[in-house]
Design a protein around this nucleic acid. Structure first.
Length: 188
DNA sequence: ACCCCGATCGTA
DNA sequence: ACGATCGGGGTT
């Protein structure tokens, strides 16, 4: 259906987080034997972004966001769900992209539309926090030749920072095409 | 030790 | 619209 090119390298994640978030649409997330096309992302960028966990400064939890681009930031939310982010931009500039949705294509086909559902299905937990996905063998993101249209909206579930339209989600039309390619089988 | 709140999700 | 469920971070 599409070509898996190379694993994304550090230069991809060193760019502005908003740009990286847009560019991640259509790329493929791999964790162990699970592969999924990224269909939804959000940017969290710097101490001046009130929705960013790093807005309150560096803490034990957010330390990874202040580190090198290409590391995973996985945290527990609402005591029940995990969220997967990839750290972006220069060291000491705290920023990351939240991976909010994928179309899982292996080992099963499922549309995972939500960060908690995604981590639950792939079994991504805090054990996967602070991993260098530029080096990990089975935890990485692949470049592809997919060109998808996406919508730009406010981020979901935040109380501050709605003015930044930093959520990017594959257009309904393109999502439908992708799901038809891979046989629709939405998660319950 | 205590309190508040949260980058969610499923059910009503 | 609401509750589940618990860790992070600030305050006492």
């Amino acid at each position: 259906m599409f070509i898996l090119k190379k694993k994304l390298d550090e230069s991809f994640f060193l760019e502005n987080t908003v740009k990286v978030s847009k560019r991640l649409i259509g790329k493929t997330l791999q964790f162990k034997d699970s592969y999924g096309i990224i269909i939804e992302t959000e940017a969290y960028r710097g101490k001046d972004d009130p929705a960013c966990h790093a807005a309150k400064g560096k803490t034990k939890r957010t330390e990874v966001m202040f580190g090198q681009a290409g590391y995973s930031y996985v945290y527990l939310i609402y005591g029940m769900y995990h969220c997967l982010n990839i750290v972006t931009e220069a060291k000491d500039f705290p920023a990351a992209v939240l991976i909010r949705g994928i179309i899982l294509i292996t080992p099963t086909v499922k549309t995972l539309d939500g960060p908690g559902k995604l981590c639950r299905e792939l079994n991504i937990t805090r054990e996967q926090n602070n991993k260098n996905i530029l080096l990990e063998k089975d935890f990485c993101i692949w470049d592809t030749d997919l060109k998808l249209n996406y919508d730009t909206t406010s981020r979901i579930g935040i109380s501050k920072g709605q003015e930044n339209k930093w959520r990017f989600a594959v257009s309904k039309a393109d999502l439908k095409i992708l799901e038809e390619c891979y046989k629709k089988q939405r998660i319950a």
